[in-house]
Design a protein around this nucleic acid. Structure first.
Length: 425
RNA sequence: GGCUAGUUACCCAAGUGGCCAAAGGGAACUGACUGUAAAUCAGCUGGCUCAGCCUUCGGGGGUUCGAAUCCCUCACUAGCCA
């Protein structure tokens, strides 16, 4: 974290955020610019506990917060102990409620995770807040009188998140409809408690973001600010942040450093420069050099390698990033895996999903044990399609057994080109 | 509270008594070509002790030799009426 800094070639933090493509929408830009340059302001961004870990979408917000912190402003990381119990309206369908114990467990996990990305020490240290603190003892009657009275239903219905659901055939519950009020209340409360005057968030949350500025304007008569980051999208139109259909999590238990590294390494040429801007602290000059490299010699994939190393280090650690990189080189490198020494191979395999197996057992069972395949049918299908190999030798029979053991009592099992696993005998 | 329409696999969606493990599209996965990229083409996507068997079409019950399909009931969703 000590190495992180903003690019000094930008005279204003807002210019850097814009160059990095982090500003999709904002409230009055001139006023915001003035506020940011004249004062050390307090700002916040909320994270709802909808899962046991934050994911890459949240990382965009965390890094945006960090950049503002590096510019001398004071972050409030808000965990949604209350809003997580309600759930913001997703475009397609109503959420199923998670029980309170689960949400509370997730809140503490997310809170811990924010510590890796924001500095909780020093002169403009980050502070952690939980919206359950000001909502759990709020009576429904007081809430309706004090807060509800400031909301007009017509305006609430007009918000994208709500109207999309009203026009869908799944409808929307009063619970999710009310979400925007809770988020508005958060901003008001933080404005009163900490003089918080800026909220950041994803542009898909714009309706919920403006809920707060509107409420503060009505109640306090003051104008506060918003920055909405764009939704990160892939140039091929696919959803960002998923690998083989699974989300990329920041929690090491859910997504290994190796998987994280691989995810970034596989970034499209068309997207890699945008990703470097958003997900790393590399300065503009350096990123522009990578841009030239992508154009001149894309097959070297230098930008992807750097991106993978930087983000893996950011989320995990330097040592783990290097280990992931070494594993990738060992397993995908030009050399024959048979020429690797046992120790190097072992450490690479430890980065992968792996399993204990016995010599002579079925390859199908190994595919299942390592999690490379979900069922035996799946495993047989994969073999039939020619997608399975052991130690880079294709398996051509469903009844094949494990008989090729590398030095150190280990083997490399592969499904397709990129899904690898370690086998230990 | 009443009426009407609906609930099908990861998502959308067809199927309205046997030819249904269930069309089509999206998405994922595998192969070819590549650079662990994109695009394109091809294959493939319930499970198992795999020429066979088992479980699945909102839940439960029933009719029938046979039900995703018909009947009853419950739950949920939408629209209209009150």
């Amino acid at each position: 974290m000590n190495k992180q800094r903003n690019d000094a070639s930008f005279s204003h933090i807002l210019d850097e955020l814009k160059w990095r493509g982090l500003v999709a929408l904002s409230t009055d830009e001139e006023a915001l610019r003035k506020e940011l340059s004249e004062n050390s302001i307090t700002y916040y961004c909320g994270f709802d506990p909808t899962a046991p870990s934050l994911h890459l979408g949240n990382l965009v917000q965390l890094l945006t917060m960090r950049r503002l912190q590096l510019a001398g402003h004071n972050p409030l990381a808000l965990v949604g102990g209350a809003t997580g119990l309600i759930g913001d309206p997703k475009p397609n369908a109503e959420r199923t409620l998670n029980d309170k114990a689960t949400v509370s467990e997730w809140v503490s996990r997310l809170a811990d995770q924010t510590e890796r990305f924001l500095d909780y020490q020093g002169p403009n240290a980050a502070r952690l807040v939980n919206n359950l603190d000001w909502t759990q003892n709020y009576s429904a009657l007081d809430f309706l009188r004090d807060v509800g009275k400031h909301y007009r239903v017509g305006k609430m219905l007009a918000k994208d998140a709500v109207s999309a659901r009203l026009n869908s055939d799944s409808g929307i519950s009063y619970t999710e409809f009310s979400y925007q009020i809770l988020q508005g209340l958060d901003f008001l409360e933080l404005n009163r408690r900490y003089n918080c005057v800026l909220q950041t968030g994803g542009s898909d949350q714009w309706g919920n973001l403006t809920s707060g500025t509107d409420l503060i304007h009505r109640v306090e008569g003051s104008s506060v600010h918003l920055i909405a980051t764009p939704l990160i999208t892939n140039s091929d139109g696919k959803k960002f942040g998923k690998s083989e259909g699974n989300a990329i999590w920041l929690d090491v238990e859910l997504t290994s450093p190796y998987a994280m590294y691989q995810f970034w390494l596989n970034t499209d040429d068309a997207d890699v420069i945008d990703r470097l801007k958003v997900f790393t602290f590399l300065p503009r000059a350096e990123i522009e050099q990578y841009q030239q490299k992508v154009e001149a010699e894309p097959f070297k994939r230098e930008a992807q390698r750097r991106l993978a190393l930087e983000v893996t280090e950011l989320v995990h650690s330097h040592a783990e990033a290097i280990a992931a990189q070494d594993a990738a080189m060992a397993l995908f490198g030009a050399g024959d895996i048979r020429s690797l020494d046992a120790k190097t191979l072992r450490s690479a395999l430890n980065e992968l999903p792996n399993a204990e197996v016995s010599k002579g057992s079925l390859v199908v069972d190994a595919l299942l044990a390592t999690g490379l395949c979900e069922s035996k049918s799946d495993a047989r299908r994969a073999i039939e399609q020619g997608g399975v190999s052991v130690n880079k030798t294709k398996i051509d029979s469903e009844s094949a057994v494990l008989d090729d053991v590398l030095p150190g009592n280990q083997a490399v099992l592969a499904r397709g080109k990129k899904s690898l696993a370690g086998l230990f005998f």
